[in-house]
């Protein structure tokens, strides 16, 4: 935890270092102020103000930023510091951008033919903020626009670089459900999992003293004997104990769910899922019957073989609405 805080502080310090650095130096408007762009703007805004047309036309003052836009061919005069800052935020996962504030002052009217130049500085980079859109940093720039030597207007602009919260509804890029965690198979228990794959639940039996054991081990706890064979479980069991898992939620699992310690009719105990009954109806002593469940997970490139697990279904008459 304290390590994470230290990392965050370090990152915020790096962001703060960009304050006061240039965002654009000696940028030039791609087009001079011109009547066609003014007319297209007025058409879009349905703005019929006669001041924006004719011989003596001025550009709508609120077009100020338009004259600095890069368009499809990109920005000119954009300073390295600004691209670096945005890149840093991208890398940290704040990949989306939305404009939040625009403050403009208009010092002299712009007229067709005016050639715009502009300089821009990074005024501030906020600490991390959580908004309705997601968590991110606000970046504020201030741009001075000139015609020749004359300051024509100033433009303060704030964007939020953020990590989006994905909403439901609408076609989205479908995330494959993460695969369940896999059993750890080793030399000592390989035969057990091979049995499960073939829908047989095998209990280890010491060939020296006949004691049954589970989980699988290299030697006998009772006599120390190393040789063993197996007996197939009858599949009858009862809940010996259980827990209900609420938190933390693991990908691929939908809490709450019950995890039970099942006592098999043969006397050994094993951990398993109880199915066919809601998690809050699992009780000590509940009679269960073995079943094998196949998990055929799609988009699972890591595990090309489907997973088979022994699960335990309640004995009592199937209830409607039971959790499967």
């Amino acid at each position: 935890m304290s390590h994470e805080v230290a990392v965050d502080e370090e990152f915020e310090k790096r962001l703060k270092a960009y304050e006061g650095r240039p965002a654009a130096v000696a940028g030039m408007g791609k087009d001079p102020v011109n009547a066609p762009m003014i007319r297209h703007w007025c058409e879009a805004m349905d703005d019929t103000n006669p001041a924006y047309e004719g011989e003596d036309a001025v550009a709508p003052p609120t077009m100020l930023q338009v004259w600095t836009m890069g368009g499809l061919s990109g920005h000119t005069g954009r300073a390295q510091a600004y691209d670096e800052l945005l890149g840093l935020l991208d890398e940290a996962g704040y990949t989306s951008v939305v404009a939040t504030d625009c403050e403009q002052e208009y010092l002299r009217p712009l007229r067709p033919g005016d050639e715009i130049t502009f300089d821009s500085i990074i005024e501030s980079v906020s600490e991390e903020k959580t908004t309705k859109l997601g968590t991110g940093h606000f970046v504020t720039t201030r741009t001075d626009l000139r015609v020749g030597p004359d300051l024509a207007g100033t433009h303060r602009f704030r964007i939020l670089k953020y990590t989006p919260i994905c909403r439901g509804g609408g076609p989205q890029v479908r995330q494959p459900k993460p695969a369940r965690s896999r059993p750890v198979v080793n030399r000592d228990n390989a035969a057990f999992w091979e049995g499960v794959r073939r829908h047989r639940l095998l209990i280890q039996r010491c060939t020296s003293c006949g004691t049954l054991r589970h989980p699988w081990l290299p030697g006998c706890n009772a006599c120390g004997g190393l040789d063993w064979d197996t007996v197939e479980a009858s599949g009858e069991g009862t809940v010996y104990s259980y827990v209900v898992m609420h938190h933390p939620p693991f990908p691929a699992y939908d809490p709450p769910y019950a995890v039970a310690l099942i006592e098999l009719a043969e006397g050994v105990r094993m951990i398993g899922n109880v199915v066919g009954v809601p998690y809050d109806k699992v009780r000590i002593g509940l009679p269960l019957r073995l079943e094998f469940q196949e998990y055929d997970e799609e988009h699972d490139q890591e595990h090309d073989e489907k997973l088979t697990l022994p699960v335990w279904r309640t004995h009592e008459a199937d209830r409607p609405g039971g959790d499967v």
Binding site: P61, T62, Q65, A99, C102, E103
Partner: peptide, 26 residues
């Protein structure tokens, strides 16, 4: 945001008439 800015400007100049001059929009 630029369109919103333009519509706010239009709202003001529509009301105050073609001689009105915008000084600041925030």
């Amino acid at each position: 945001i630029l369109t919103t800015n333009g519509l706010v400007g239009r709202y003001i100049t529509d009301h105050f008439g073609p001689t009105a001059v915008l000084r600041r929009v925030a």
